[in-house]
Design a protein around this nucleic acid. Sequence first.
RNA 1: GGCGCCGUGGCGGAGAGGCUACGCAGCGGAUUGCAAAUCCGUCUACCCCGGUUCGAUUCCGGGCGGCGCCUCCA
Length: 481
Amino acid sequence: MPIRVYNTLTRRSEPLNPLTPGKIGIYLCGPTVYDDCHIGHLMGPVLFDAIARWLRVRGYDVRFVNNITDIDDKIIERSQRSGEPWQEITRRYSEQYFALLRRLHVATITDHPRCTDFVPQMIRYIADLLAAGRAYVTPDGVVYDVQQQPGYGKLSGRRLEEMVAGARVERDPHLRHPADFALWKRAGPGEPSWDSPWGPGRPGWHIECSVMTYHTLGPDFDIHAGGEELKFPHHENEIAQGEAHGGGYARVWMHHNLVQYQGSKIAKSDPRMRDPAFAEQFKAWRVLDAHGAPAIRYLLLSGHYRRPVDFAPAAIAAVRTALQRLLAALGERCEAPATLCDAAGLAALLERALPERAAQARAAFIAAMDDDFNTGAAIAQLHILSHEAHKEAEDSAARAAILDVLAGLGRILGLFQPGDRAQLASTAGGDERLAKVMELVLELRAQARARRDFATSDFIRERLQAAGITVRDGRDGTTWS
RNA sequence: GGCGCCGUGGCGGAGAGGCUACGCAGCGGAUUGCAAAUCCGUCUACCCCGGUUCGAUUCCGGGCGGCGCCUCCA
């Protein structure tokens, strides 16, 4: 059965048909590196890492491109405000982004092209569009002429006439149409710039992706991905540019929904964001420190990607507990070196003999992933496998087989990686000093238990409970939260 | 106003025209030095109104409610 994918362009799910048999190219719009990443920035990379892992397992050779936007108005603004060179800002935040991806076990991205490495290619591409009569020069730079584009708006379901009606009053008099957008922006005084036939300047926002896909995946490619909010205008304009440049531009468009907090999007315009403490809790590194990267990865994959994920303390707590139970069931199996699974790896998992209900869960996992990458339904099957394993005798072959399959399937989603157990057990609160103190206290308690001094052991546990810390003795040692 | 998405049990969250999703939390029991983990059992569901159907929470229409985009945005 072929993999089915929901295509935003056609608004239905369709069988995945790669341009080149056996190969899949994915382009995921990456971050503009001008500030700390927040939780929302993690959704795309984690989701498409899971998807790329699944495609690998299904026998595809996956090239996964995730760009870094390292020149843009906000970067310049930030640099001018702080006096820090813009290259320093982009270096710092792109490194932060990469570090976050490592912590989240995002391991399938093959290319991280940077905008500023493709400026000459962008200039050539813009020149091509001008030569084709699809763009024009204004005093501010070069602009794309949307009225020359048949079918403009097809991705987001917009029509140019309606957009004129809804256009802002203060329209740029140099534009032929309010929806026309910048391909090249002439530099203002003191702004970073590159030489071009249209004067020193920098590329517009949309052109970078069209050019980087062109130079990494080719003029047409399989999957273009990004967050919902990029459908318009960004992706619409990419299509316009790509098609104007000649030929098709991306077969399948995939859009993931957004991370929300208590029912609404986490946005800078949210009034609650004025409270620095409120805003701080969404910073990605802080979230990972506080809850553990494994729990966040699990959370982001726990529903379907076309629905929003709610990032709420109660949701994270529930997810942590659930994940901890799976990790406890797996024990040392999680600590085996993590290699990316391939088709042979999946075949090996399928060959393992399992009791009926476990075998059904394994099949359901595969069906769920094949059906538009339903990671939420797939994860549900992991719990069934864990449940079935616990029903088998402690040292039975059946139990071992189920747990092996559970570990293997989970790892395809990037879960159950080495160090996850320790990280999850020790990250509660994200307080280094507290973690050290707890380590000491639990060591003393373990000594008491070893000499069957349960009075002391219970005293410690009860007093910690009174302080809001729950202690649990598991097969793999004691954890707290 | 335009485009799109969604309304499932205490909470989170899959799903299908009739068959236990799953997770967290709760309750009863087993086990355990006590807890935890684990096992067995168990209570709360499908926004409202029409229509199609033998049968709809699942399909269609309308209503109400929520969210996103239309400006930078993961």
